[in-house]
Design a protein around this nucleic acid. Sequence first.
DNA 1: CGAAGGATTGATTAGTCTCAACGCAAGTGG
DNA 2: CCACTTGCGTTGAGACTAATCAATCCTTCG
Lengths: 224, 224
Amino acid sequence: MLREAFENCNRTIPARRDIYREGESPHVLAVVLDGWVQCHKQLANGRRQILSFLLPGDLCTAASFMADPIDHTVAAVTQARIAEIAEMELARLVPQCPSIAQAVSRNGQIAAAIQRERTTSVGQRTAYERIAHLFCEMFFRLRVIGLTEGHSCPFPLTQSEIAEVTGLTQVHVNRTLQDLRREGLVELQQRQLTLIELDRLMSIALFNPNYLGLDRDGRELGLG
Amino acid sequence: MLREAFENCNRTIPARRDIYREGESPHVLAVVLDGWVQCHKQLANGRRQILSFLLPGDLCTAASFMADPIDHTVAAVTQARIAEIAEMELARLVPQCPSIAQAVSRNGQIAAAIQRERTTSVGQRTAYERIAHLFCEMFFRLRVIGLTEGHSCPFPLTQSEIAEVTGLTQVHVNRTLQDLRREGLVELQQRQLTLIELDRLMSIALFNPNYLGLDRDGRELGLG
DNA sequence: CGAAGGATTGATTAGTCTCAACGCAAGTGG
DNA sequence: CCACTTGCGTTGAGACTAATCAATCCTTCG
């Protein structure tokens, strides 16, 4: 696995702290070892869009560890631990171990698929569906890496952060969450999320886990 | 260049015809040689989101020429010509010519950056800003490949297609376009777009071409 | 205890959607 | 050559989703 290559050099970042800022060129490939991380863009008018969340095992700056400055900011949601490997060292490692390049590439493909799904969410789903979809996505991703328990998982986002990722306002997220709860679909308290009726939630969210490389039950497709 | 590797096997696709459908596994890497191509997702409720446009020189199925079925449909906007190279043949070519892998990778990075910007547009910009932004994006991308003339470029999208990419309805696109015209910012007729006041349009759109790997004047950043 | 961040509520408004109709131009078939 | 169709653009009226502005409440924590 790629993950071992990073065992040395790793940093701990406090919650809500920036890791890489838009415009910088980190020249490293980084992996999240622990915690939640988000990528966002800030517009000139001050509004902010969270693009994606990174969970343990996900690469960040994968999309940009070439020369170019990155087009978005990477920041910790919770306290997070990341490991970094310098671009130059990576170049040395890859020939020895082609599975690294493969892992980087696969990570990039899934990240891209997630981004496409997010565009679709924000463009075509209602507030109710968007939030339901976000819950499904995070739950399935967490389950793959063994961070769920039954129908529950950690969910460290504030309502403002849910707003920033779904393209809604914090107030509207609050009200929509109340609707979801009132319908008996989810519970969310103490940063702990429970998907009470997962199937119904999935169908409301128009959620199809194929884009994550998973089947309807969350098992990995294709490759073993 | 990568483009030469594709000179043989190429197909012409009529306007509005699907090229690869969601769920298929093309097992090819394809390049657009000519025309506009779009990628979209269709939701279970029938609504459709156009994810991105591909122009001559862009790769499609790059994100998916591995085993997995693709998560979106690729279709021709105008009549288009594409060249395909089989996954297996590609595997043979790459070791001989590492610049291919590099080009594929760079293409993927820019595609991902475009997708991030689209998420941001749909999530945070108003209808007016979104359409302005789309115009700026396509104009800058077309200019890089030499398909603009002064402040004008081809723009073969119908208002419904503009709606599908911006996450608006066709009716609202129509009205918003009228606003843009009334403000003297753009002209759009006969599938020909003119950005009368490019600077003002860019600032309205909160458009910053860095994400395309370009500077404010559309020149390529970093690499020569 | 006070401060601060987050969640909740209410009232009002703005932006966008929906539905429905109509106009215009190009293409098609008789 | 004309009648018909089809695709695209335009307009109007009304409904509704989500935004805005402004308070208030609740927890947590120093």
